[in-house]
């Protein structure tokens, strides 16, 4: 190791105000402008592995694909196992493999946008990587961020990941058909969300029974 010693008068301090999150935030704004120009609303789905993001998006695609143009960007560290079943519905799907990256960023979303015909679309669902921490710091250009938690993740999911909820516009509490079996209270989870952000809308859903899916679809169309 080289040690540099200098007398104090030779040392300079330069004052900066340089944001490290700004580069991504600016790209996200650019994505948003491109989408706005095309009349497209992008919705970003974040949540843990196994919370039901893919299944929820699949249900929403089923509900909405005949009414409006929908496309799906599927973030996945390695596989296309989530993208393939959605593509079976005949909607444009772009698989974004992050190769073990822990979050999507605005740059990969811009690349995904360039891969599809934006002309006929009204909605793009972006499925983020299964992770409740990292994606919070990286806006993508979506108009709303949805956090999906499921009762199978236990009673403390919300308070364990506060940052994710502070930046969200909608929370879906999924797999409510299992709440009793899991001994997890949907009301308590909802209460935790409102402690963090009082005006954040929470919709309980079951992708199994279909409960709440219409409400999520309506909320998304109203964004």
């Amino acid at each position: 190791m080289i040690k540099i010693e200098a007398s104090p008068e030779e040392i300079y301090d330069i004052e900066l105000e340089h944001s490290l999150l700004e580069a991504n935030a600016k790209l996200a704004e650019k994505n948003r402008a491109v989408l706005d120009r095309n009349g497209i609303t992008a919705i970003d789905f974040m949540g843990a592995i196994g919370s039901g993001k893919t299944t929820l998006i699949t249900r929403l695609v089923e509900k909405l694909k005949d009414r409006v143009g929908v496309a799906v960007f599927n973030g996945d560290a390695t596989t296309s196992s989530d993208a393939d079943p959605i593509a079976a519905y005949g909607v444009p799907v772009v698989q974004i493999a992050t190769i073990n990256g822990c979050h999507l960023d605005a740059n990969v979303v811009a690349k995904a946008c360039a891969r599809i015909d934006l002309g006929k679309l009204r909605l793009i669902f972006i499925e983020n990587i299964g992770n409740l921490i990292c994606p919070a710091e990286f806006p993508l250009g979506s108009k709303a961020r949805v956090v999906v938690v499921s009762v199978t993740e236990g009673p403390y999911m919300v308070r364990k990941h506060p940052h994710m909820f502070l930046g969200a516009q909608l929370v879906v509490i999924n797999k409510i058909e299992l709440a009793e079996t899991m001994d997890v209270s949907v009301e308590a989870l909802t209460g935790d969300v409102h402690k963090l952000k009082p005006d954040l809308r929470v919709i309980p859903t079951s992708c199994k029974t279909g409960a709440g899916i219409d409400d999520v679809a309506r909320a998304i169309l109203a964004v």
Binding site: A6, I11, D13
Partner: peptide, 8 residues
Amino acid sequence: TIRTIRYI
């Protein structure tokens, strides 16, 4: 944010 850089 990068606040300051000290250098010679």
